[in-house]
Amino acid sequence: MNIKFKQETFRGDFTYRNSPENIRRFPFPFHEDKYMYSVNMEPHVPAGPKGFAFESLIDVDEHYISEMHDRALVLKEDPLRCQALPHMMAGQWDVLELIMEQQAAGYPEHFSLTKNGDQWHWINRPMGIDQKFTFGDASTLPYEPMEYITRQAQGDFCIVDQRDNNLWMDAGMVTTQADWSLDFDIGMNFMEWHGPVPLAHQMGVFDRALKFLLNLQQSKPVRRLNWTMTINPRLDTSPENYPKWGPDRMTVTPENIGDKVHLRCELQSLWRLPRSNAILFVIRCYLLKMEELVQVPKWARRFHRVLRDLPPELADYKGLTKFRPMTIDWLSKYDDGAPTSSGIFPE
């Protein structure tokens, strides 16, 4: 499958759009007409209709080149978006191997990896990269291994160390985040970095999730979907840049909802890493405009109902309060009350 990569922006003039094919591969995060927190993890194995975002386990799509360009811009302004504590080097190499192997396996026409002992050869055709290096010797790469490979992979990546029956945010590349900061969270444990989430603690969600993750096994990655909403197709909605994107929420009007308001889905996958025994936490962000979303009638009906019935605490935490009523109103035109089929895939 040859992907036609687009040239577009996630800032300034915001030219980001989804092609009709790309809309239907969006990992729509609601399997039913309502939403509440749960430990909604399932095996990360290929699933869904042909071409869906679950087809390859490290997904590459038409926005690849533009997203990598946006990441480079973020890093240029703020190098602290990529950090690794000194004890995470084995985990960095684990991540480099995982991403190279997955991208080469999923998209052989775009990526290839050749290994000869520790002499590796990586080719990334879309980005015009041809790199020979020694696996395990960081001096043979232009960046440290995690930064090197995550400048060539869509999504945010956190390497989470496991010790003392807890998980620790000890390395990461985070430039497409929904309002959280690696620089703030680095070194924190699982309970600390989830501290601000409302309701879920009382439900025991994090206790269960932590227990589950501590036992995550090699070769058995898991995934879950998370979501929020973003005004304008902006990948970098970081606390550091809040002054740049926070005010966007005041610009929504009934006339521009279809273009400005986006459903932001995170395809989160978790992988046990072999050398370091750490966990790789991939947070891959997908953006879908309301006018794109309503092209799939099932998603239009369902998202209207989810948003309408969302507990107010969740709407506040996700930062939707300002534009939620207007968006519900806009979406209601696309909800005829017909029943929807279960599951996330388009009908």
Binding site: V39, P43, K211, F212, L214, N215, Q217, K220, V222
Partner: peptide, 9 residues
Amino acid sequence: YLCRGGACG
């Protein structure tokens, strides 16, 4: 099943 070790639920 997932973990087979009494941990995942």
